[in-house]
Amino acid sequence: MTDTKNSRRTIRFTLNGRPVAADIGLNQNITEVLQDSFGLGGSRESCGQGLCGCCTVIMDGKAVTGCLTLAAFADGASVTTVEGLADGETLSAEQEAFIETGAFQCGFCTPGFILMTKQLLDENPDPDDEEIRHYLSGNLCRCGAYPEIVKAVRLAAGKRRNA
């Protein structure tokens, strides 16, 4: 039985492949903890309602809305953020594709789109445009880079298939 009065606890999880621990407030979401405890800024709270996808992280292989996910639920999980995609200086296929197609402007939503692209291509290596839109429909880009983003996903799919 857990102590239900304490509003803080220590969580342990795997962050971008490394085991980590953090002392968190139970009222903190995973995006806040990534920023405050680990200095990772790629997951960002913008709309605060799970609509824009700027806060996306991948938890146990599934993309989730960081700003609506209690950090406590990361306890024991494996969390991947956009910072965990590149291998040293070598960018992932998705990251390369977003640069090569010019699929971002201000860049604030970009990590979310890249992580959703990874989720899509992990589940469907050869998606058609409808499937691409389906996966990305929960991410918003106020700069309106959608046409280039769809191109980026197609390019990333090709890069991954040929890798």
């Binding site: 996808g53 993309a63 989730v64 809305t65 609506l68 959703m116 989720q119 389906h134 929960g138 991410n139």
Partner: peptide
């Protein structure tokens, strides 16, 4: 379900 919210929300 395909058009219910989005993949990220349906994951949770």
């Amino acid at each position: 379900l395909r058009r219910l919210s989005n993949v990220r929300v349906r994951n949770i």
